[in-house]
Amino acid sequence: MSSAMSERPDKFTFAAIGDLHVKEDRTLSFRQLFAEVSTKAQVLVLCGDLTDLGKPSEAELLAEDLRACSIPVIGVLGNHDYESGRTEDVKRVLKGAGMHLLNGQSYEINGVAFVGVKGFIGGFGRRMLASFGEAVVKDLVAEAVNEATRLENAMRAVASKQAVVVLHYAPIPDTVEGEPPEILPFLGSSRLGETIDRFKVSAVVHGHAHQGRYEGRTPGGARVYNVARSIEKPTGRPYALIEV
């Protein structure tokens, strides 16, 4: 775990946004948005699908915009960032821009540990997909379990009093409400929520569900926020401002 500052103020605010989907055609720039966020929060958290097709060229455009951000940037990748099979190149570009990419690690700032994994699909509650039947189904469930285990291992290493979990996929069904019911199992997994509830977590942020709902809670009471760019937020802006 790395640390950017030694002491936490009484009030700590971070900004969070997911699903930027940066495209090569450069139709949308986030430079002004990142500059704005830098005046309102102490950290910017990006919740995956940073690129549209997982191309290094898209990551380079995002890296250019991130230069306007004067606060630390933390985040995870999403499924779109894997599309072109160039994930390592995408990571290299974003890390080169100073972004702290998390995949089973944490980054601590001002006494708050940001713990991140991408997460995976599988569904929620009693309808969660079980490891039964064809080998390919068992492989899919194993991937969901692996992501939850990676999150658990990272949380066990956290010594901070405050922890924020950063995901791409949703850990609860509440924040994906509004999406077509046919695709709900592909938007997240309760395995993530079950893991979160084993620990004291101040807030959880995720993206992926573009038509979901902004706020919900895990069964254990942890606050969960869907910060996908298209989700309506209390700020009236594409990003959320969350206090811990």
Score class of each variant (00 low, 15 high):
V165C: 12
Y107H: 08
A68G: 05
L46V: 13
I71K: 12
R237G: 00
D52P: 13
D89N: 11
A63M: 12
A209F: 05
Y169A: 05
R223C: 01
K200F: 00
G220K: 10
F30E: 00
G212A: 08
L20P: 05
R127V: 00
V227D: 08
N79G: 10
L102V: 02
A240I: 03
D10A: 08
R156D: 09
K23I: 07
F14M: 08
V93L: 06
E108D: 14
D139Y: 07
A63L: 12
L241D: 03
D65Q: 06
S190M: 13
L184G: 00
E36Y: 04
S202F: 02
E215N: 00
G122Q: 04
Y214Q: 07
V93Y: 03
V45T: 02
K118C: 11
C47V: 11
L62W: 04
T51L: 05
L241A: 07
A16N: 14
A209G: 04
G48F: 10
H100K: 15
A170M: 07
E147K: 09
H208L: 11
T218V: 02
A15V: 04
V176W: 01
M1L: 05
Q211A: 14
L140F: 15
S6G: 14
D65S: 06
G216A: 06
I183C: 06
V22P: 01
P238T: 02
L20D: 01
E179H: 12
K161M: 02
L102R: 01
S70Q: 12
V137T: 14
S3F: 05
F186A: 04
T195V: 12
V112D: 10
I74A: 00
F186Y: 13
L187W: 06
D49M: 12
K233L: 13
D89R: 13
F120D: 13
K55T: 01
R127H: 09
M128A: 15
A4I: 12
A154I: 08
R8W: 00
L184M: 13
L102Q: 02
A163T: 14
N110Y: 10
G54E: 11
S70E: 09
F14E: 04
E24N: 10
T27A: 12
N153M: 04
L192Y: 04
G193C: 07
R198K: 15
